[in-house]
């Protein structure tokens, strides 16, 4: 199992841009990985535990991305690969090519992957495409938006919450899956996990090619929308005004 995670600024509170307007600045808010990727890690670890396999975490990013790899190691991944590069300069096609290069190199060394898991979309750039581009780069099938999956005899059953209800894809390994949050509960790292994570040697690699880059011109922040809130009252005394509103809206 290989699981791909991206170091991204925590955007759950205020979002700030870097001075060159090429990225979201996380220096104040801190860094994390997207909830989809947390679930991808959890799925990879569970599959590794169930099959006696190895869950390897991969990240392309600056030296600080080692933090996100250590976090993945702390919750059960047992190996990690760091493609050291400026993630802002790498567009989605570049990232897919670099992940593919690692998958191929490890395959050639006899430690190939049955399953490559990614998030459905990264929390910062939200490109919605790296996993699919990776599948094409590797010539492998891909299932998108997966909540849970099982592997039985080389066949993956991937479950997706589709537009009309539950869907299952049965696909032979090796394959790529992009994960959507919601199917599994990511575990918290234990003290033992954190200790073990410190001991793992992260495999550092250089990119296989120069980046083509993305088509980004610049980022901007949306203008704040003026508030036009009408305060109906304070505390329980506002109940009558609330029910008046329900009546006005015809929802009671």
């Amino acid at each position: 199992m290989l699981v791909c995670v991206k170091r991204v600024p925590d955007s759950s509170s205020q979002v700030v841009l870097t001075p060159d307007q090429q990225a979201v600045d996380g220096r104040m808010a801190g860094y994390t990985v997207s909830p989809h990727e947390e679930c991808a890690i959890e799925l990879a670890v569970r599959l590794a535990e169930a099959t006696g396999g190895v869950a390897t975490a991969l990240s392309l990013g600056p030296s600080e991305s080692a933090e996100q790899l250590r976090n993945a190691l702390a919750v059960g991944c047992t190996a990690a690969v760091h493609v050291v590069a400026d993630a802002v300069a790498f567009g989605p096609t570049d990232v897919a090519r670099e992940i593919a290069a690692v998958v191929k190199a490890h395959g050639d060394e006899g430690r190939g992957y049955d399953l490559v898991l990614l998030g459905n979309d990264a929390a910062d750039t939200g490109d919605f495409q790296v996993g699919i581009r990776l599948a094409y780069a590797l010539g492998l099938p891909v299932v998108n938006g997966v909540s849970t999956l099982e592997v039985v005899d080389g066949m993956v059953s991937a479950h997706v919450d589709g537009p009309d209800g539950a869907e299952t894809y049965s696909v032979p390994t090796p394959m790529v899956a992009t994960i959507l949050e919601g199917g599994v509960e990511p575990r918290y790292p234990s003290l033992k996990g954190r200790m073990a994570a410190k001991k793992v040697e992260i495999e550092e690699r250089s990119p296989s090619a120069d980046p083509v880059g993305s088509e980004r011109v610049q980022l901007t922040l949306p203008p704040p929308s003026p508030s036009s809130v009408e305060i109906l009252g304070e505390g329980p005394e506002a109940a009558a005004a609330v029910v008046d509103l329900f009546e006005k809206l015809g929802v009671r």
Binding site: V229, G235, P236, A238, A239, A241
Partner: peptide, 21 residues
């Protein structure tokens, strides 16, 4: 960002709204 708001503890406001309804 809301159109309307009540400022207060949901554990007091919501039961009062339920009772009023």
């Amino acid at each position: 960002k809301a159109h309307y708001a009540v400022i207060g503890d949901m554990h007091e406001v919501v039961p009062a709204v339920v009772d009023e309804l």
